[in-house]
Design a protein around this nucleic acid. Sequence first.
RNA 1: GGGGGAGUGUCCCGAGUGGCAAAGGGGGCGGACUGUAAAUCCGCUGGCUUAGCCUUCGUAGGUUCGAGUCCUACCUCCCCCA
Length: 420
Amino acid sequence: MTDAFKPRSEFLRVLTERGYIHQCSDLAGLDAKAASGSLAAYIGFDCTAPSLHVGSLLQIMMLHWLQQTGGRPLALMGGGTTMVGDPSGKDESRKLLTVEQIEANKAGIRKVFDRFIRFGDSKQDAAMPDNAEWLAKLNYIEFLRDVGRHFSVNRMLAMDSVKTRLAREHELSFLEFNYMCLQAYDFVELNRRYGCVLQMGGSDQWGNIITGLDLGRRLGTEQLYALTSPLIATASGAKMGKTAAGAIWLDPAMLSPYDYWQFWRNSEDADVERFLKLFTRLPLDEIARLAALGGAEINEAKKTLASEATALLHGRDAAEASAATARQTFEEGALADTLPSVEIPAAEFGEGLGALSAFVRAGLVASTGEARRQIRGGGLKVNDVAVTDERAAIGRDALTASGVVKLSLGRKKHVLLRVV
RNA sequence: GGGGGAGUGUCCCGAGUGGCAAAGGGGGCGGACUGUAAAUCCGCUGGCUUAGCCUUCGUAGGUUCGAGUCCUACCUCCCCCA
C-alpha cells in the first residue's frame, strides 16, 4: 500500500519500511502529527491469559518502535473489557474471569512488555493503563446519555466481527455487543488522560478503532487516528503461533527460550525476510543481504532470525545458548545437555520406566494413546533409536553418566528426561 | 403467539437406512523426500491397566436386546406467518 507515500516522521518511516502498516485513517495527517512532536499511541491487549504469545508480538513491536522514535507507547490492559468479551468471531463467548485472575494475568503480561518498552513517569516513558480504571466506574444511565447516543446500531451490525457471528448462527449476547462501544470509549478516555491520538491494532480491529475515531469527533476531542497492521499468517496461510504443542508463549516459564528459538528457526523460506523486518531490529540493508541468500543458504538467515528474535525477548545470552544447543543437536548430532528437560525423581524412575509413560511425562505426547500411535508411525525415539515396541521400557542403562535420557518426537522435538 | 428447519468426534466444516468409536474434507502430528523450508506422496488424528474395557453426536428423560438415528420436555440458532 501507499507506495508513493514518503513519511517525514521517523515513526511512520520505520513502520512503512518494515511492513507494519496495513491501513491508516489518514497517513499524511498522522505523519504531520508525529513529525511535529511526541506522539502518544495505544494498543489494547486483553488479559485473558497469564502471558502473551507471538500473535501479539507484532503489536508489541509497533509500540517498541514508537518509543524508539520518540513517541510514548500506551499498552492498554483490557481489565474492564476482559469482563465483557470480544465478538471476535469465536464461537464461544469468552469465559468471564475474576478480578484476581485478571490481576495475575496483567502481572505476567507486564513482564513481557518490560523486555520491549521502557516504563516510567516521564513524558517519553510507556504506561500501562487498565480500562477497568474508568469502565468499572461508569454509570449506565450517564453512559447511555453521553456516549451511547453516538453509536449507530445500523453501523455496528454492518461490521465484519458482528456479521460473521450472526451469519454463523451463533449467539451474540448484548454484553459482547457492547464491547466495541467500550473500546471506542477507551480511545476517548486515553485521549483525555494521556493526549493519545492514535490507536493501533491488527487489521481485524479496524472497525473497532474507527468507531473510536468517530466517537472522539462527536465528543469533540482533537483529531484521532487509526493504524492497523497486516494479519500475519505464514506464507502457506497458517495462522501464526498456533502449533499442536500449544501457543508460542512469550514467557520463558511457559515456553523455553530454546523452543522459542526453534519456532523462528523453523520459519518457511518465504517468510524469512518479512519476519526479519517485523520481529528483529536488524538494519534493513542487513536484512536485504540475508534475504538474498538462496537455497539451503537461507538457513543461515533463519538462524539469524531465530537468534535476533530470541535475543529481543529473552536476552542475548539465552539466544546464544539456544543457538548452541541447536547446533549440537542438529548439526553435530551430539547430545546437548542444555536441551529442555523434565525432571523425574529417582525413586519414581526406579529400575526403569515404560516408554509410553516416559513420553507422556516428557510432554511430547498428550496421552499414552497418542504415544502408541506415534510408535506405530515411527515417530518416537529414545537416544535417537526408534521405539518399535509399545511395551518397551527405558532402563538405567539408557541413562548417560549425568543421568539423562533423550526422548524425541519426530526429528525436531527433543526433551531430556533427567533422573534426580 | 403460530408454522417449518437446525444443533454431530470440545480445532473447524460436514455425511450419517436403529447395530456407530460414527463417511469425507480442512487443520494438526508422524513417516518418505529435502535444507530443522515449501510442494508432493503415505500413515495417524476419543481415553485407558489395549486380543479387552470405558466415554462421545445441544440438555434431561423415555421406547428398544440395542438410539447420533424413534418419542417427550427443555435450551440455543435460522426461516416464514402474526
